[in-house]
C-alpha cells in the first residue's frame, strides 16, 4: 500500500512539462496510486479551464478610440526619437563655441597643430602612442579640461533625458 503521495508541486511540474530528477518516480507513482491519479485529474481539469479565456473584454471600438488619440502624441514621439541626437549636437556646437570664446582661436589652432593622430594608427603603435600622448600633454591643459567638462555636461544631460524618457 502506498502511504506517501506526490506533492502538489510534483504534479504541477509534471503537467507543466518541466523535467526534474524525480520524473521517473512521478511517472511510476502515478501508474499505481489512485489518490494521486485523482489529484492529477483535478489538476488536468483545472489546467484545461485556465486555458479558456474568460476575458473581461474591453468595450467595442477600443482600438479606434486609442488610435484617435494618437495624432497628439505623434509629434512628441518623433521629437523624442531625435531629441537625444539634437541635444547632443547642440552640446558639441556649444562646447566648440565656448572653447573658442574662452581660450581663443589661436590656442585651439595650436592644439590641433600639436596633435598627430595619423601617427597613432601607424604600425609602430607603442612608440607613436607615446608620441601622441606627449603631444596632448604639450597642448593647452585648459582646453583639455574644458573639453572634459563639456563631455561630462553632455553625458549628464543625456542621462537626465533618459531618466525622463524611460520613467
Amino acid at each position: 500500500m502506498i502511504t506517501k503521495h506526490l506533492a502538489d508541486e510534483d504534479i504541477q511540474l509534471y503537467l507543466d512539462g518541466i523535467s526534474t530528477t524525480r520524473d521517473d518516480f512521478i511517472r511510476r507513482h502515478l501508474l499505481t496510486c489512485q489518490h494521486c491519479q485523482e489529484e492529477l485529474a483535478s489538476y488536468q481539469q483545472l489546467y484545461k479551464e485556465l486555458k479558456d479565456d474568460f476575458g473581461y473584454g474591453l468595450s467595442a471600438g477600443f482600438s479606434e478610440r486609442v488610435s484617435s488619440k494618437i495624432p497628439v502624441s505623434c509629434r512628441s514621439s518623433l521629437v523624442s526619437q531625435y531629441s537625444e541626437i539634437i541635444l547632443s549636437l547642440f552640446g558639441v556646437i556649444l562646447g566648440g563655441f565656448l572653447a573658442f570664446y574662452i581660450i581663443g582661436a589661436e590656442s585651439v589652432i595650436k592644439i590641433f597643430s600639436n596633435l598627430n593622430p595619423i601617427g597613432f594608427f601607424s604600425t609602430d603603435t607603442t612608440l607613436n602612442s607615446l608620441r601622441f600622448f606627449s603631444s596632448i600633454l604639450r597642448a593647452d591643459f585648459h582646453l583639455i579640461l574644458l573639453a572634459g567638462l563639456i563631455l561630462i555636461f553632455i553625458i549628464a544631460f543625456d542621462k537626465i533625458i533618459s531618466v525622463f524618457r524611460y520613467n
Binding site: 488619440k69 502624441s73 512628441s76 514621439s77 526619437q81 524618457r165
Partner: peptide
C-alpha cells in the same frame, strides 16, 4: 499611448 510614445 505610452507604448506608442516609447515604441521608438
Amino acid at each position: 499611448i505610452k507604448v506608442y510614445e516609447n515604441l521608438g
